[in-house]
């Protein structure tokens, strides 16, 4: 049990009709790590995350916490301790902040005590949200919505938290804040799988990184092993 990976992906394929978005990827994530998946637009990063969460159909093997979840329907996966903040945040805009967070705890809804504790944890992590409990989520600022999305994912105390471009559209200051919070969440024992275009931040935060291009993992390693400048030139067209 202890030696196996928390998440292991083998020969993952995602196809949208004739479009092959992910083409036979293999990778793994160990307990306690922060792992980033980098790649340019259209590389297949979101498709990979969505396949793991079963939001899209995929072929291949997905093993989470010792269990083969390749055939699981999407709604069963969070019960195993795997949460995701989707691209575009995926908040419930016509529900209040508090209701959004409560839904984050749907998998542990019978445990009132735990829910109360997690509300406190999330509100202390994101003080902005604490002041806006009864505000409709759709009226929050972009940064606050991102915090809500992360906070909501934490309400179920996941073993693995997957985030799809949490820095997108945020000011540098907010990006800093989100990344510090991710560090703290990780220190408290949550494994993190991060999809990012912001390569500098990902390098600063991650224990390991994978780089994806046109549906395949082309290189991986620790931040030291992966040189940002070559990475930029080679795969991001010098962005």
């Amino acid at each position: 049990m202890a030696t196996e990976h928390l998440l292991e992906i083998k020969n993952l394929w995602v196809k949208y009709g004739p479009v092959e978005a992910v083409k036979g990827t293999d990778f793994w994530i160990d307990r306690g790590e922060i792992v980033s998946l980098l790649g340019s637009n259209g590389a297949g990063k979101s498709s990979t995350l969505r396949a793991i969460s079963a939001l899209v159909k995929s072929e291949g093997k997905i093993v989470f916490n010792g269990r083969d979840i390749s055939e699981y329907p999407a709604y069963k996966i969070p019960f195993l301790g795997l949460s995701m903040c989707p691209e575009g945040r995926g908040i419930f805009s016509d529900l209040t902040v508090e209701e959004n967070l409560a839904l984050g705890a749907y998998t542990v809804r019978r445990n009132r005590k735990k829910i109360r504790e997690n509300f406190e944890k999330v509100y202390s992590l994101f003080e902005n949200l604490a002041d806006k409990k009864s505000q409709l989520a759709g009226t929050l600022s972009g940064g606050e919505q991102q915090m809500l999305s992360i906070g909501r994912a934490l309400m179920s105390e996941p073993k693995l938290l997957m985030l799809d471009e949490p820095s997108l559209g945020l000011s540098p200051k907010l990006v800093d804040m989100i990344f510090n919070i991710l560090k703290e969440i990780n220190r408290n024992g949550t494994t993190i799988f991060l999809v990012e275009q912001n390569a500098a931040m990902a390098l600063a935060l991650s224990h390991r990184l994978y780089v994806m291009q046109t549906g395949k993992i082309i290189t991986f390693g620790t931040p030291k092993e992966i040189d940002l400048n070559t990475l930029k030139k080679k795969y991001f067209g010098g962005v």
Partner: peptide, 10 residues
């Protein structure tokens, strides 16, 4: 409101 996000909640 958001079927996909609802699935992600379980």
């Amino acid at each position: 409101q958001n079927e996909e996000a609802a699935k992600l909640m379980g």
